[in-house]
Design a protein around this nucleic acid. Structure first.
Lengths: 195, 195
DNA sequence: CCTACCGATCGGTAGG
DNA sequence: CCTACCGATCGGTAGG
């Protein structure tokens, strides 16, 4: 059986196929019947492994959130120059996005379909995570190496650039995660204009 | 009647309310029953004015596409230095996004729910539009004022930053469209690092 | 993991 | 713009 060969539980398999479908069609437009058919089972059989459609969405969103937090855990308290630290943050963030390309697409597009209180928790976690990026921008201003007029605006723009990579990234393409992370860091830190 | 005072046809009113709901809940998750209720009419009455739910989506997507094209029409064939031209493109683009905040959210999120051949046309138009931004990056490299390693990557990142503004922009906020456009242009052209 | 089925809701039509 | 209604599909449950 595939799930034994790949050493994955049936639940993990459901999760994985759901991520792919949710990414392609969107969470709301994906029916449990299609998910079941994609797994080769009857719709009712899904509910032996999962509680509800929304449970799948919650698992995606909170597992991704945990991965984002973990990815910067070892960087955030290091003593590093602001530009080095920001680049490390960007590389860590992009690695999580590109290693979980389906889940991150769902994470970015469909978190708003979470119910309360999951939705409020989600927004709160995102804010806490973004705070680490705010801190490093502040640090760069204090060190006089960054010129940032508006920290909030800059953080939002950085995340815009980082989080859209999932839309155009092809895993069979020529770029590795760190290459893309470095290109993004170069562009955001140094800009398009020649020095 | 409101629609007469505001000089709007019933169809335009439906369109406007639909844009707001589609933005808030997503296209698929918004039912025609909710749309009707928001307008204070019965669901069946909608179909006196529109052909289908997807017609509303098509109108949003193609009207936005037309606005984006028109906004750069007077700029693209001018003889301008690349950085000036890129900034003008960014200001024009951001003005369209922020003047149509609901419609642009739908445009960016839900275009994939278009059916064929509308979807293919949409993708084609977007590619043509992006081409103008590619040209100005190429121009900047020729003029030796831009340092761009990868035009395709850079254009995608520029649009990521530009197109996410709709998610956090508050129309009652302190910023006007051109202020945001200029801040984006500053960040993308000059970067975060102090010169 | 299946058969059988639930009530609710979907987009849309007929006819006035 | 309404009443009345269509067949299809939704997420999910009961019981095995």
């Amino acid at each position: 059986m595939i799930e034994l060969i790949e050493n994955k539980s049936r639940k993990e398999h459901i999760q994985e196929v759901a991520e792919k479908l949710f990414r392609e069609k969107g969470y709301t437009a994906t029916s449990m019947r299609l998910l079941a058919a994609s797994l080769g089972i009857e719709p009712a059989s899904l509910y032996s492994h999962i509680k509800s459609k929304e449970e799948i969405l919650e698992t995606i969103c909170f597992s991704m959130a945990a991965q984002f937090f973990n990815s910067i855990l070892e960087i955030k308290n290091n003593t590093l120059p602001a530009d080095t630290k920001l680049r490390a943050f960007i590389l860590a963030h992009i690695k999580v996005v590109l290693n979980n390309i389906n889940a991150s697409a769902v994470f970015f597009h469909d978190w708003k379909h979470l119910s309360s209180p999951a939705k409020e928790n989600f927004v709160e976690m995102r804010k806490t995570y973004e705070q680490e990026f705010r801190k490093v921008l502040k640090q760069g201003m204090d060190e006089n190496t960054f010129k940032v007029n508006d920290i909030n605006f800059t953080v939002l723009t950085i995340f815009s650039a980082l989080n859209m990579t999932h839309e155009w990234y092809k895993s069979n393409g020529k770029w590795q995660s760190d290459e893309i992370g470095n290109k993004l860091a170069d562009l955001l830190i140094n800009g398009i204009a020649k020095k």
